[in-house]
């Protein structure tokens, strides 16, 4: 039986995705599906697909600076289409200001800085998904 809820990770760096997934697996074990995409376009397709499969997306974790569609544009679109989806941004320190500015507009639940601290990461995710 497929798991009905998923966490989607978006980053242009595959290693980040792998690391992130490992962190999630380590903490939430098999509780969620962990889906990943290398850019915003792929992520939007993925989300649409998952929604079509009636899989409930509880969280989107995304990088801020990405080639093509940027983090804020991507999150804006997600927010417009699926306002119930919670979002988190993982970003380098340099972009924090830009993220904070856009936070209200894109209904951002939280910001995680790179490099992340595992405990902090998990704590933030748990806060957002309210487990």
């Amino acid at each position: 039986m497929q798991k009905r809820s998923a966490i989607v990770c978006v980053d242009d760096d595959e290693m980040i995705l792998i690391s992130l997934k490992q962190e999630l697996i380590a903490h939430f074990n098999g509780r969620y599906r962990y889906e990943s995409a290398l850019n915003a376009e792929e992520a939007l397709d993925l989300i649409d697909e998952l929604v079509a499969d009636k899989i409930y997306i509880i969280l989107v974790i995304t990088d801020w600076l990405m080639p093509g569609m940027n983090g804020d544009e991507f999150l804006m679109k997600v927010h417009e289409k699926y306002p119930e989806i919670q979002t988190l941004v993982i970003t380098g320190y340099a972009d924090i200001l830009a993220v904070s500015k856009a936070r209200q507009r894109i209904n951002l639940s939280g910001v995680i800085t790179k490099p992340w601290n595992s405990d902090e990461l998990i704590q933030k995710i748990e806060t957002v998904i309210g487990s």
């Binding site: 760096d13 690391s19 992130l20 490992q22 380590a26 790179k114 490099p115 992340w116 595992s118």
Partner: peptide
């Protein structure tokens, strides 16, 4: 930070 985060994460 990016490689460091990855190293950190991979180490974990």
């Amino acid at each position: 930070n990016t490689p460091l985060g990855i190293i950190n994460s991979a180490g974990g």
